[in-house]
Amino acid sequence: MSIDKKTVEYMAHLARINLGDKELEKLSTQLDSILDFIDTLKKVSIEGVPPTSHALPINNVLREDSLAASLPAEKTFSNAPSRKNNFFTVPKVIE
């Protein structure tokens, strides 16, 4: 077994996704078989192999420190689910 229900539940929490009981059950089974399949990677010898996180060998792409236009408020807020004056608003933050 590669992943259990508890771990999936924790991952869902980290990802801030509510899962119903049935959903969690199903997802756990599916992820377990997907991870079993992914575990075939364990067969590959990776000793001394560097990781590739970028497909192209590009370096040092930088921009000049020059001002560009910011968005006007009507565009900034045009999609906002909740707004008060010139602020986005969210429900009370309590951890």
């Binding site: 999609n79 689910p81 986005f88 969210v90 429900p91 933050v93 309590i94 951890e95």
Partner: peptide, 19 residues
């Protein structure tokens, strides 16, 4: 927070809103 869908369900706080 900034765009797209936000739950219409009853939520008590931020983390519930996210989830």
């Amino acid at each position: 927070v900034q765009y797209g869908f936000r739950t219409k369900g009853k939520i008590q706080n931020l983390i519930e809103m996210y989830k």
